[in-house]
Design a protein around this nucleic acid. Structure first.
Length: 480
RNA sequence: GGCGGCAUAGCCAAGUGGUAAGGCAGCGGUCUGCAAAACCGCCAUUCACCAGUUCGACUCUGGUUGCCGCCUCCA
């Protein structure tokens, strides 16, 4: 079964055939580091993290490049505002990005290059573009002439005439065409700058990706990704630059993820409703965030709401509860090596092969959870060899699916313990008191003093403590 | 104005030209001292609306309505 990908360039799902068999070269636009990362960044990064993991699981040799834009107008503006050095600002937010993404269990990309470390290569490409007649210099600025690139607009499905009709771009009279974009920008006094044949300046936004992508992955690559908003103009401009400079198709498959809305509204500066990752993971388990982000198809918009997050949390609890139950009852081990993947893994792969349909994949995961719970209910005492094999197979499938989607990495014990601890902290509850009350209740139950037992449970309920009487003993958890 | 997307049960959400995955919530039951958890059963004769193609469409085509995104920095 081959992987099929929706390619923005063709507007269709296409069978994935890498340029070089068995290898995947993938470039994803990373953040401009002038502020903390928000939940929208999380979606993009998580989606491509899962795509990369899935390719690896299908035995592809993946080279994944995700850049940092660490020189840019916004960074300079913000740094000036704060009265600090723009390099220090960039460094700070790169550090924060890693902190957030580590918390979300995002794997590091193969290469994570920074624009400022590739200035020479950027200048070289700009030189080539000027020499080939695609770029022109005015004062200290260098522009790309969109009219010189015949297929300009092929990614976003626009043409220059249409664009001009509804033009709302800033009018720079020096440009030959309003849509010409800057390759090299002259520096104002005090701004970070590099020496160049066109004077002191810095790279334009788009050119860095052409430079870094070609350096680490080659002049033609398999996959280039990013948020939907990057299609125009950023990715359109990247195509123009790269193809004009190298005379080769730049990217075979373009993948774009949809937005995250907050309570049905787009995150925007005017609404001030940017939801930062560091804030979200204070309230919700990072794995629940991943489960939530992957519960819709990556191209669809997804609405971040408290309700949706609570549902994701319930779902995650359900899976961990099953894993715990399975381990305790049967001694199934999380060791996956040496076991063949079963029907659920197969179903999961089928979903993933269809344009990385994680939403369907999660359905398969819950089917497996359900099946295991049922089997565990049915055989209360002894397990037949057949049942055991079935159990082990489904169990490993679940872990493997979790591994691709980047959750279920904790042991159930740790997961629930951590959850209790956080709940206690949040509600300022004293654990010793809770446990003492539970002991009293256990004694009352032993004495068949149901009235007292129920009274204690009621008391605990008032403190948001929920009990479960299991055969091995009573366990407790903190409610939401 | 141009380009693109979406409309599936109370909510979220997959989906194939052949008759609607999954999750959350709800209801009935099993289990339990009672609960909780888990399990069993129920929960869209119907997929915005109207035409058309077809033996047959939620799935294809055309139109209508509604919502959203991009076109300006943005994941």
């Amino acid at each position: 079964m081959a992987i099929h990908i929706y390619n923005t360039l063709s507007g269709k799902k296409e069978r994935f055939e890498p340029l070089e068999p068995g290898k995947v070269n993938m470039y994803v636009c990373g953040p401009t580091v002038y502020d903390s990362s928000h939940i929208g960044h999380a979606r993009s990064v998580v989606v491509f993290d899962v795509i990369s993991r899935y390719f690896k699981s299908q035995d592809y040799d993946v080279t994944y490049v995700r850049n940092f834009t660490d020189i840019d107008d916004k960074i300079i503006d913000r740094a000036n505002q704060l009265g600090i050095d723009s390099r220090a600002l960039a460094k700070k937010y790169i550090h924060e990005f890693y902190k957030d993404m580590d918390a979300l269990n995002v794997e590091r990309a193969s290469v994570e290059p920074k624009a400022t470390e590739h200035i020479d290569r950027i200048k070289k490409i700009i030189g080539t573009l000027i020499q080939k007649g695609f770029g022109y210099q005015i004062d200290g600025d260098v522009f790309f002439a969109v009219d010189s690139f015949k297929t300009y607009g092929k990614l976003s499905g626009r043409n220059l005439e249409e664009l001009e009709a509804g033009a709302r771009v800033d009018i720079d009279k020096r440009k030959r065409n309003p849509f010409d974009f800057v390759l090299w920008k002259s520096a104002k006094p005090g701004e970070p700058s590099w020496r160049s044949p066109w004077g002191m300046g810095r790279p334009g936004w788009h050119i860095e990706c052409s430079a870094m992508s070609s350096k680490y992955l080659g002049e033609s690559i398999d996959i280039h990704g990013g948020g939907k908003d990057l299609i125009f103009p950023h990715h359109e401009n990247e195509i123009a630059q790269s193809e004009a400079a190298f005379d080769k198709p730049f990217v075979k498959y373009w993948i774009h993820n949809g937005f995250v809305n907050i309570d049905q509204e787009k995150m925007s500066k005017s609404l001030g409703n940017f939801l930062m990752i560091k804030e979200v993971i204070k309230s919700y388990h990072p794995e629940a965030v991943r489960l939530f982000l992957l519960s819709n198809h990556y191209r669809s918009p997804i609405d971040f709401t408290e309700k949706a997050m609570e549902e994701a949390t319930s779902g995650l609890d359900r899976i961990y509860a099953l894993l715990e139950r399975a381990q305790k009852k049967t001694g199934l081990s999380p060791e996956t090596s040496g076991f063949k993947m079963g029907e659920y893994w197969e179903g999961f792969c089928k979903s993933m092969d269809d344009d990385f349909n994680t939403a369907r994949g999660i359905g398969v995961l819950f089917n497996a959870v359900h099946k295991l719970n049922r089997l565990l209910d049915e055989c209360k005492n002894r397990l037949s060899t057949d049942t055991r094999t079935t159990l082990q197979s489904a169990y490993i499938d679940i872990l493997k699916m979790g591994n691709i989607m980047g959750f279920l990495v904790e042991t159930p014990g740790t997961y629930f313990e951590d959850k209790r601890y956080k709940g206690l902290e949040r509600d300022s509850i004293d654990q010793a008191i809770i446990e003492k009350m539970i002991e009293e209740r256990t004694a009352a139950r032993k004495a068949k003093d149901w009235a007292k037992a129920d009274q204690i449970r009621k008391e605990l309920g008032k403190r948001n403590i929920i009990l479960e009487d299991r055969s091995e003993g009573t366990i407790w958890k903190v409610g939401r």
